[in-house]
Design a protein around this nucleic acid. Structure first.
Lengths: 227, 227
DNA sequence: ATATAAATTTAGACAAATCTAAAAATATGT
DNA sequence: ACATATTTTTAGATTTGTCTAAATTTATAT
C-alpha cells in the first residue's frame, strides 16, 4: 500500500488534466512543451499555466526550468497514463454498455476519468473484457502503463493493395463521424486500398467490398489495423 | 431544456454534499437543521457551515435565517433527491455489475454521484433494470423526485420487532425461489423480525409464527410490506 | 547587432471552500 | 431573572485555480 500510486501522488482534477495535456502535447516530439501550447490546450491563460507548472514541479511530476518549457517525469508519465487508461475504459463502457455513440462519450469520460478507486477501474476493465482500444481506436494503457502494440496506422499511410480493419479515427469531431456514417464506414469494417491518386493524395478503397473514393483529409483521419 | 435542473442550478460537489446532508438530517423532523448538526454531518467546522449556508441561500436552494437553522427549498429538495438518486443507482451498479460487496460501495458512490450527465444516469437506470431499492435497501428516487412507496422494504432493512407481509423478492432466480419454498416462505406470509446478528447481519424471524434463521443474503432479497 | 516582436513570468486580485480565534446571540439552571 | 454555557456568526487567514496587466526573457528580422 505504501507504494500505491494513488496514495503518494494524489492529484486534483485540474492537476490530472494538466498532466494529460502535457502527455498529449509531448507525444510527437521529444522536446519540452511550451507554456503557450499548454495554455492553448487547457483553454486558459499562460500565466495560469506558469502557476500550475510550478506546483507540479514541486510535487515532482514534471521537469521545469523557467522559459524552457515543461516535460513529464517518470512519476508524471505514470500518472498521466493512469488517467488516460481510465478515460478510455469509461469510453468503452459508455459505448458498449450504455449505448452512447462514439461522438457523445468524451465529455462524460472527462468527468469519470477522475474517479479515484483502483478496484473500480480494475473491475470495469474486467467487465468490459480487457479491451485494448477505445471507441475511437486509441490504445488503452495497461495497468503498468504499457500501450498495446501499434499495428494500427492511418489509411493514408498504408501501402497500396494492403488490407485491414477500420479500428478508429484521429479526428473525432461529430462532423467527421457523421460523414463516416453517411458513407457506410464504421469500426470493424474491412478496408482494402486499391489506388492512390498522386495529385491530391486521395485514395480509392473497398469498404466491405464496396468501392469508394476518399479525400486525403478523410484517409489521414482513419486508423486501420493491418491484417 | 431551459428548465433543465442541471442548467439553472449548477452546484459544486461541496454544495451538493451539503444539500444531501440537510436532506438526511431533516428527514425525521419538520424543523430546521442546526448549524452544529450540519457541521457534525459534514465533518467540518460550524463557521464553514455558516459560510456555505449563506451561499446556498443566495442560490435559492435553502431557507435560512440567522441563528434559526436551515431547511431545503423546493429547488433544494429536488437537487438533493437527484444526487441521492445518482448515488443509489451507482451503488446498484457497483454491486450488480462489478461484484462489489454492499459495504464497499459507499466511498466510490460518493464520487460517482457528482458526475453531471442526465443521459448517463437515465441509461444506467435502464441498464440496471430500473431498480427501486439500492443494495442497502434504501429507496431510489425516481427522475421526478418521487420515492417508491415506503411501505415495502427489504427484510434486512426492517427495524427490530417490526412485522409485515412478504410481498416480493429482489433476486428472482429459481435457486432462490426454491430455497424459499423449502423453508416454507411464500408471498402473503406474516413475518416478524425477532433478532439481528451484528456479526454477519443474519436475522432470526418468525414466519407465520414459526422461528427460522436467515442469512443476510436471504434477508436482503426479500421484500416485506410493513403492517 | 540592435530594435522589435513574441513568449513567459511576476505581481496583484478574485472566488470557492476551508480554518482559527474572537464576538454575539440564544439557551439553560437554579 | 441572571449568570453561565452553548450555539452561531463574524473577522481575518489559507489554499487552489483562475484572471489582468505589467515586467522580463527569448526569438526574429533587417
Amino acid at each position: 500500500m505504501y507504494f500505491c500510486l494513488n496514495y503518494y501522488y494524489r492529484m486534483t482534477h485540474s492537476e490530472e488534466n494538466y498532466l494529460k495535456a502535457i502527455f498529449h502535447l509531448n507525444k510527437g516530439g521529444a522536446k519540452a512543451v511550451s507554456t503557450n501550447a499548454l495554455a492553448g490546450q487547457m483553454k486558459t491563460k499562460p500565466s495560469s499555466v506558469t502557476d500550475m507548472i510550478r506546483r507540479l514541479a514541486e510535487k515532482g511530476v514534471v521537469h521545469y526550468k523557467k522559459y524552457q518549457g515543461v516535460s513529464l517525469t517518470e512519476k508524471g508519465s505514470r500518472l498521466a497514463l493512469s488517467v488516460i487508461r481510465k478515460h478510455r475504459l469509461w469510453e468503452v463502457f459508455l459505448v458498449e454498455k450504455l449505448s452512447f455513440s462514439w461522438d457523445e462519450v468524451h465529455e462524460v469520460a472527462e468527468q469519470l476519468e477522475h474517479i479515484k478507486s483502483e478496484q473500480l477501474i480494475d473491475r470495469l476493465d474486467k467487465l468490459l473484457g480487457f479491451p485494448k482500444f477505445d471507441p475511437h481506436g486509441d490504445p488503452i494503457p495497461a495497468k503498468d502503463g504499457s500501450l498495446p502494440s501499434g499495428d494500427k496506422q492511418l489509411l493514408s499511410n498504408m501501402p497500396l493493395h494492403s488490407r485491414g480493419i477500420c479500428v478508429g479515427v484521429k479526428d473525432s469531431s461529430s462532423a467527421f463521424l457523421k460523414f463516416l456514417d453517411k458513407n457506410r464506414i464504421a469500426l470493424g469494417y474491412r478496408i482494402e486500398l486499391m489506388e492512390k491518386e498522386e495529385f491530391d493524395s486521395s485514395v480509392r478503397v473497398l469498404v466491405e467490398g464496396e468501392p469508394i473514393h476518399l479525400s486525403h483529409q478523410i484517409a489521414s483521419n482513419l486508423y486501420v489495423k493491418k491484417i
